[in-house]
Simulated assay, not measured.
Amino acid sequence: MVVVELWERVLHQRGAHSRLCVAGGRVLVHERHSRLVCLDAADGSPGWDVPLGTWPRALVVAGDRVLALPQDRPVLSCFALASGALLWQAELARCSGHLTVLDGVVLTGGWRGYTAPAAFALADGRPLWRAPAPVRTELPAAWAGGLLLGDGTRAWLLDPRTGRETASWLLPLPLAGADSGTVFTVLDEDRCAAVCGSRSVVVLSRTGRAVEVLRPQRNALLGGAPLRADGLLWLRERRCGGGGGWVGVDPLDGTPRQRVAVRERPVTAGVVGTPTGVAVALEDGALLRVPGQELPGAPAGPAGPARRTGHRERIGHRVAAVHPLGPGRLLAVTRNSLRAWQL
């Protein structure tokens, strides 16, 4: 089945330099080096367009609000999702980064250890608390009723209203960091996964504060959070010789079930679920649609699951990342534009 292009939005800057967020039938994207734009996810039509500043360190949609932190100004801005109206701004310490929202609380700070984590009220930007000293953490995740932070071989949970630590975990290997990207993947209310070291996936459990190490992976992994699609956890592999791939593993024990391996070109960021499996993209602009996962319990064989490359189609000259855009749809970040496709 041939993919059908739905719309295209020229960004007037390199696609890889644009931060975006998909939520509530809308696409929020930074473009023209200084603007934040809201697009209709169905047809790409612009809803509103506001000045923001240079590339955002963070961009988050929380309910009916949009939070953005530009790189050139230490100011956290909150906009109305429906209209783009500026609701409030909060001054931050220089080089602040990271944004996570939970239960009406906005947490920022801790990026590269430059600043102390600080919390603000989502409703009006009122300061709630600030840590007494700078803390280095990967991008926090909302999980288990708290905010999960991590650095090196330690992860810890904060109460969003007070900043008090309520739980902690000692990891067997350091977290595979992602700088401003996510490292934690919430599996359910009790389990949260992350890549540690070069080949391991660990699962934190809220019950008993246990850390489970899943089956080690055969190939080295890139940093960043595992992605969920087609019932599997997808891990991006680091390969020699310019190629790349993704491996889909069972979220219960880490057993490989699917592998997408490409020798000639690296794969991009992102795995998107389709009605018949998953789709991944290559940096040269090719889209690979891969059939659904093998049945649970199916033998993987001595060399692991079969490598599948699926059906290949071109969706751009260069692709930096792909994102899910709703059932059966995909959003590709290309060389200088966003392009939406029906799968």
Rank of each mutant, 00 (worst) to 15 (best):
A229H: 01
T166Y: 02
G152H: 02
A340S: 12
D179N: 13
R263N: 08
A306Y: 05
Y114K: 12
Q71L: 15
G244K: 03
V319G: 04
V202P: 11
R126D: 08
V101S: 04
W111L: 15
A123F: 07
T334Q: 04
W156G: 00
G285C: 03
V267M: 14
G163R: 03
A82V: 06
D151A: 15
A332W: 01
P266Y: 05
A320H: 15
L175Q: 02
A300C: 07
D188R: 06
L139Y: 03
R35T: 13
A176E: 03
T185V: 02
L252P: 06
L11I: 05
A225F: 01
V50G: 00
P327D: 14
L282Y: 04
V280E: 01
L204D: 00
G208L: 09
P174V: 05
L87A: 09
T166Q: 13
A58P: 07
E5C: 09
A116K: 00
W7S: 08
G44E: 13
Q13A: 13
A42N: 11
S96L: 06
T207P: 03
A62E: 06
L147G: 01
R32K: 12
V262Y: 11
R73F: 07
V203M: 09
A193N: 01
G44V: 09
A119R: 03
T309A: 10
V4Y: 10
V211F: 06
A85V: 07
A229R: 00
V4N: 14
E212T: 11
P216L: 08
S198D: 14
L28V: 10
P174M: 13
D72H: 14
G328F: 13
T162H: 06
G97I: 00
G277C: 06
L59R: 00
L39T: 05
R161L: 11
W129R: 02
L102P: 00
E313G: 03
